[in-house]
């Protein structure tokens, strides 16, 4: 069955999932990008710069794979835009609680025919309820 992608999905929110930020995961993520920044690999350097532990690279929240509150067929979706806003750096040892919400849906005629543009927002909070980051993904369904 085709998923219903109309205004009725705006405001739908996923269940909250918890993610532990591990040193090894940060190092492997930075290594995959090829980013040699020592803040992401060298604990002593990060501490000398005033941080409690390794920093995570800015795009690290992509590793928090929160399920969308709607089902989409991956073979008909494209990632159009991505934005992250950070309240503070993400540090190894953080436990981040994430949930994603559908913010908007609209249709557009494009090179692939009729497309549906969905904006999903993911929020990440620490265990004390303080915001850590907000991610906004623009997903094109064709």
């Amino acid at each position: 069955m085709e998923p219903v992608l109309d205004q009725s999905i705006v405001g739908l929110t996923s269940a909250t999932e918890e993610f532990e930020v591990e040193r090894g995961a940060i190092r492997r993520f930075a290594a995959a990008i090829g980013d040699p920044n020592p803040l992401y690999a060298d604990v002593a350097h990060a501490r000398a710069c005033g941080y409690a532990d390794l920093l995570a690279p800015p795009t690290f929240p992509t590793t928090f794979r929160v399920a969308l509150p709607i089902a989409l067929d991956a073979s008909h979706t494209l990632h159009g835009e991505q934005e992250y806003r950070y309240a503070r750096p993400i540090i190894a040892g953080d436990v981040i609680q994430c949930a994603s919400t559908i913010r908007s849906v609209h249709e557009r005629e494009g090179t692939l025919g009729k497309m549906t543009i969905i904006v999903a927002e993911t929020t990440g909070m620490d265990r004390s309820g303080q915001p850590v980051f907000t991610g906004s993904s623009t997903i094109i369904v064709h």
């Binding site: 980013d35 992250y84 806003r85």
Partner: peptide, 16 residues
């Protein structure tokens, strides 16, 4: 991140 250096911070990043 290189622009931010050791003591700065990337507050926002948006790409298309």
């Amino acid at each position: 991140g290189e622009l931010a250096g050791d003591h700065g911070f990337v507050q926002r990043l948006k790409v298309r």
